[in-house]
Design a protein around this nucleic acid. Structure first.
Length: 135
DNA sequence: GTTGAGCGTT
């Protein structure tokens, strides 16, 4: 009876409602996102469909997003893969992490939640301050 | 025609 069961839930830290406004969820565990995967080390010639095809073999890929450069328009070499199940995502990560795609080693890891944030104190008037260049 | 550590828009 080898049932992969579920992931060991890692360290599930329940966010206590300390404040109804600040949700500073910093890297609590090694899995900030469950079904969200961060794929890096991709070749600059890789597309979303290639990644989806590569990760679709482990499960159902719900969404695949690759980041592209706004200046050049070329792929930055990293993207995000969303699975329908965290079990598949974990398998894909554990299976594709370290492997190679298009001749380049892939680096798969859980993605950080940067879209699930709902901050209220945001100053959109921060325009005008050039912080140099984006990282 | 280039480069190679990383965490992203709707």
């Amino acid at each position: 009876m080898r049932k992969t069961s579920l992931i060991h839930c890692f360290a599930r830290q329940v966010i206590r409602s300390s404040s109804s406004s600040s949700s500073y969820c910093r890297s609590f565990s090694s899995s900030p996102s469950n079904n969200k995967l961060f794929v890096a080390g991709l070749s600059w010639s890789v597309d979303e469909k290639s990644l989806k095809e590569a990760f679709s073999s482990f499960g159902e890929v719900s969404e695949v997003r690759i980041m592209y450069d706004k200046d050049s328009g070329r792929s930055r070499g990293f993207g995000f893969v969303n699975f329908s199940r965290e079990d598949e995502a974990s398998s894909a990560k554990d299976a594709m992490d370290g492997k190679a795609l298009l001749g380049r080693p892939l680096k798969v890891s859980f993605a950080l939640d940067k879209v699930n944030r709902e901050p209220l104190n945001t100053r959109y008037s921060n325009r005008g301050t050039t912080f140099g260049r984006s990282r």
